[in-house]
């Protein structure tokens, strides 16, 4: 779920009940992973759903953060592809179909996670854990990981400015990998320090193993209508995808 509260709160999806957003996210992810990508129609339908979700969850304003997530996945997959190709060269096997399947599944998962799970804000996560009666021990572990993740992300976001203020350019950092590693170690130590500070803050606030929120929401007709509309759109698109397939086969 969302660790950064970056998705705009006013988008048509963000403004809905947290439970709707959770069902929507899990439903979309399940549909994307269960429907195989063997046909062009299926891929086109999934891309169309992603496009709709992109505009309904904030649109162009979120393009930057989505692109950064996509680039991270691209980098990971590139390394994985090189490993797969080297493995094939050495062993004479063919792992490319497995790689493409993994790449597609990774892409769908990341896209749905970034588009939908990010619309569930931290307070809504706490609310959902209470609403769904998730065992406290499990809920608090997940919520604390998100809290610490936010702290670490903030610590890392300060690093470029700190380095720049000391005259450390990207070029300079690349030229001195050992010193750069030393600087990164300092950042890691600071993140550990942030974790310790968070623990002290929790103790100081009387933390007793649970996290709370004042947030509450009522499931309204708009949520039911939105859920119904979404199911309808998915069904229509799946139908549309078979139509495309039939058209391509006919040609």
């Amino acid at each position: 779920m969302n660790g950064t509260d970056r998705a705009p709160a006013s988008s048509p999806i963000s403004a809905r009940h947290p439970l709707f957003k959770l069902v929507l996210a899990l439903g979309t992810l399940s549909a994307f992973l269960l429907v195989p990508d063997r046909t062009t129609g299926a891929v086109a339908a999934k891309l169309a759903v992603l496009g709709a979700l992109f505009f309904l969850s904030g649109g162009i304003g979120r393009a930057g953060s989505l692109l950064r997530g996509g680039l991270a996945l691209f980098g990971f997959l590139a390394v994985f592809l090189i490993c797969a190709l080297l493995g094939d060269l050495l062993s004479g096997g063919n792992s490319l179909p497995f790689f493409f399947d993994l790449a597609a599944k990774s892409f769908w998962t990341l896209a749905v996670s970034l588009l939908l799970f990010e619309t569930i804000r931290y307070t809504e996560c706490v609310y959902l854990s209470q609403l769904l009666r998730v065992p406290h021990r499990l809920a608090v572990q997940v919520l604390l990981v998100i809290l610490i993740g936010r702290k670490i992300a903030r610590e890392f976001s300060r690093v470029p400015a700190a380095w720049k203020s000391r005259g450390l350019s990207a070029r300079c950092l690349r030229r001195h990998p050992v010193r750069t590693a030393g600087l990164l170690t300092v950042v890691l130590l600071r993140t550990v320090d942030q974790g310790v500070r968070l623990e002290t803050a929790l103790l100081g606030r009387g933390f007793s193993g649970r996290l709370y929120t004042c947030f509450s929401a009522r499931w309204g007709r708009a949520d039911s209508a939105a859920l119904f509309a979404f199911c309808l759109i998915v069904l229509l698109l799946l139908n549309f995808s078979s139509g495309i397939e039939a058209f391509l086969n006919f040609r």
Binding site: D5, R121, Y122, T123, V126, L147, R150, L198, A201, L202, R205, G206, F207, S208, R210, L211, Y212, T213, C214, F215
Partner: peptide
């Protein structure tokens, strides 16, 4: 420790 001022200020009471 919370993500809204309301949750943070009200933490002790909610607890």
């Amino acid at each position: 420790i919370a993500s809204t001022v309301e949750d943070d200020v009200g933490f002790a009471l909610l607890r």
